[in-house]
Computed example of a mutant assay.
Amino acid sequence: MTKFKTAIIGAAGYTGGELLRLLVHHPNCELDYVHSNSQKGKKVTDTHPDLLGDTDLVFTDKVETDQLDAVFLGLPHGETKGFLEKYPFADHTLIIDLSTDFRDESQGFLYGLPEINKEKIKKSKRIANPGCFATAIQLGLAPALSTCWIKDAVHISGITGSTGAGKKLSETTHFSERNQNLSVYKLFNHQHLNEIKQTFGQIQAGFDQELLFVPYRGNFSRGIWITSYFPFSGSLEEAIDVYKTFYQDAPFTHVSEQEITLKQVVNTNKCLIHLSKEQGQLVIYSAIDNLLKGASGQAVQNFNLALGLEEKTGLNLKSIAF
């Protein structure tokens, strides 16, 4: 079995920890090193104690750029460009960046949304992993874009778990602030809208409808729930058929004719979609785990595609039913 020498840069945070949990058990991955400036010299299990018994790796602040087949970059937003200037990896090394730094494709990275760019990902060595909100919104609306159904503003609301804000503490991530609470932030101007509009413009040339997005901070740890709707004159049956056809070759994105819940996707790399039609509006519900399909799981999915592996390798994860 082929083993690809791999490194994780910035492995102490939530997304880095999720990458570790996936890659230590990935049959085609040989973790060469895990990098963290803040945790250098410490055992990985000191920071991620749930990995006790799974790995004996130690964090390092050294960066080796030679002999790597793949590297995942889990650095804070805005730091990746400078890091790659300081540490240029070989052209043959697959780089998957989980920050926002390269999601604008004019920066030279391919936008890694597999349901849209699968064939391009298979040929790419520089991949920008999509944002979590962006993933759930795009997967919920992409089939409608492909049929040019959206001719007016799209209303979108989304709620995310506290892990979406990262591991570093802030006032809005403290338990006393988040628990039994709900709040709106970045109304209509969330940073993920730029990458969403980029994709939508590629699916439907000239698309310029407003995306009126209301993001909420949720009082739970992980998961994203999106509700989107727009005027629609067709039937619900027609919409379901279009959506199922669009995702027929997508192993992680599923259209459910039954109502969905957030727990169905937590701890998985799935996106579940449910459609309804009410008062002349097509209503789309989409749900993902923000740390997996919205970050590290999707990064491993891109790793599999870019290295010629079966797309679901290492990602057959179990959801929580209760």
Rank of each mutant, 00 (worst) to 15 (best):
I196C: 14
G53C: 06
G314V: 09
N28H: 15
I203Y: 01
V242A: 12
K40I: 00
H77N: 15
S296Q: 04
A136D: 07
N194Q: 10
Y33A: 00
L68K: 08
D54C: 06
F213Y: 15
S99N: 11
F322A: 13
A306Q: 01
T173M: 07
D61R: 08
V71S: 10
A250L: 06
N129D: 09
F246M: 03
T199E: 12
L272F: 06
Q39G: 00
V266I: 15
Y111I: 10
Q279C: 08
N304F: 09
T135M: 05
T65P: 08
E18Y: 11
S228V: 02
S157M: 14
D56R: 12
T15F: 01
A136N: 09
E119R: 14
I203T: 06
S36P: 08
S106H: 13
I273K: 07
I9D: 00
V265L: 04
V184R: 14
P114M: 03
V24M: 06
P130T: 10
F89E: 05
I203K: 06
F4D: 03
L187Q: 09
E105N: 08
I226Q: 05
L309H: 14
I96Y: 00
G158I: 05
L292W: 04
I226N: 05
F200P: 02
F175R: 06
E171S: 14
K293M: 12
Y216C: 10
L31I: 15
L84C: 11
L291Y: 02
I240D: 04
T172A: 09
L20M: 10
E18S: 15
S235L: 12
I226W: 03
T47E: 13
V214G: 09
L139P: 04
S157F: 05
L211A: 07
